[in-house]
C-alpha cells in the first residue's frame, strides 16, 4: 500500500500550558500527528512581536510534545503559529498538512469506547473510514449515535445498521444508539457517559454555529473528554497545497463507496457551503 498515512492535527495553546492527556496520545498512536502550537494575539499586538518574545519557549515545549506523541506510536511533527484567529489557523494548517481530522484536547484515561454521533449533515463515509484507520486492530469499541425527530425512522435505522456493519467487517465492536424526540445536542451529551472520547464530523458553518459557537467546541466543553473532529471535504476554493490531500481523500471515498449502500454518499461530496 503506497497511500499516505492518516494524519491528525492536534492544536494546542502552547503558551497557556495546554497539555495533551496520555489517553489521547495513545488513542492517536495509530496515526501520524502534527502538533499545532498556537498562540492567540490580541489585535493591538503585532504578531511578530509575540513571535520574537515567545518563539524559543514555545518551540521547546512543542518539541517535547511531539516526542511524546512519537513514543505513543505514530510519527509526529510540530508547527508554531502566532495568530489573531485560531479557527483560521487550524483550517489553514490542517489543509497544508493534509490532516483528515483535528483533535480538541480534553482529559481522559485509557480509551476503551468511542462515541460517534452521525446526526445531521455530516460526511458519514469519511467518519467511518477515519474510524477504521484510528481504531486499527485495537480493542476499542465504537458506539454509533443518531438523534432524529420521529420514533419510526427507517432511514435512520438503516444508516446506523449499515455503518455498524461496515465497522464490524473490520473487526470493530460497534453498537448503535438511536435517540428520538429529544434535542440532538442534549441527547448526545447525555450519551457521553461510559465513553472516553468522541469522534464527530465537522458541520458546515450555519446560523446556529454563528450564534452558539461551533458544535464540536460545544460538545468538547460539555463532555470534558477529547473530541476528534473529522474535517469536511476541502472546498474547491482551497489552496493548491491541499489539492493532493483532497485527491487522496476522494480516491479513498470512491474506493469505499462500493461497500456502503446508503444515501450519504451524496452528502460526502456535497459542496460545503
Amino acid at each position: 500500500m503506497t497511500r499516505t498515512r492518516t494524519r491528525v492535527l492536534v492544536p494546542v495553546a502552547i503558551l497557556e500550558g495546554e497539555s495533551v492527556s496520555l489517553g489521547l496520545m495513545n488513542l492517536l498512536g495509530t496515526v501520524d500527528v502534527t502538533v499545532l502550537g498556537y498562540h492567540v494575539v490580541p489585535e493591538q499586538t503585532p504578531p511578530d512581536q509575540a513571535r520574537l518574545q515567545y518563539e524559543d519557549r514555545a518551540t521547546e515545549a512543542l518539541e517535547d510534545l511531539a516526542e511524546e506523541f512519537r513514543e505513543a506510536g505514530g510519527d509526529a511533527d510540530h508547527r508554531l503559529v502566532f495568530t489573531p484567529d485560531r479557527r483560521r489557523t487550524i483550517d489553514r494548517v490542517a489543509d497544508a498538512t493534509g490532516s483528515r481530522a483535528y483533535a480538541i484536547t480534553g482529559a481522559t484515561g485509557a480509551v476503551e469506547r468511542l462515541l460517534v454521533p452521525l446526526t445531521g449533515d455530516v460526511a458519514v463515509d469519511r467518519i467511518l473510514s477515519f474510524l477504521v484507520d484510528l481504531v486499527g486492530v485495537r480493542p476499542i469499541g465504537v458506539t454509533l449515535f443518531l438523534a432524529t425527530d420521529e420514533a419510526a425512522d427507517d432511514a435512520a435505522d438503516d444508516l446506523l445498521e449499515a455503518a455498524a456493519a461496515r465497522l464490524a467487517e473490520r473487526g470493530i465492536d460497534a453498537r448503535t444508539t438511536h435517540v428520538t424526540g429529544a434535542p440532538p445536542f442534549e441527547a448526545l451529551i447525555d450519551a457521553v457517559a461510559d465513553h472516553d472520547a468522541i469522534v464527530m464530523g465537522e458541520r458546515a458553518p450555519s446560523l446556529r454555529s454563528l450564534v452558539f459557537g461551533e458544535e464540536a467546541e460545544r460538545v468538547a466543553a460539555e463532555s470534558v473528554g477529547p473530541v476528534i473532529v473529522v474535517r469536511r471535504v476541502p472546498d474547491e476554493a482551497g489552496a493548491d497545497a491541499e489539492l493532493d490531500a483532497a485527491v487522496e481523500d476522494d480516491a479513498r471515498s470512491t474506493e469505499e463507496r462500493g461497500e456502503s449502500g446508503s444515501d450519504d454518499e451524496e452528502r460526502d461530496d456535497a459542496p460545503s457551503g
Partner: peptide, 15 residues
Amino acid sequence: TDEATITDDAELERT
C-alpha cells in the same frame, strides 16, 4: 505567502 508569513521556526497568520 497569501495566508501567512513563514519564518524559520514559526508562522504568522494573516487574518
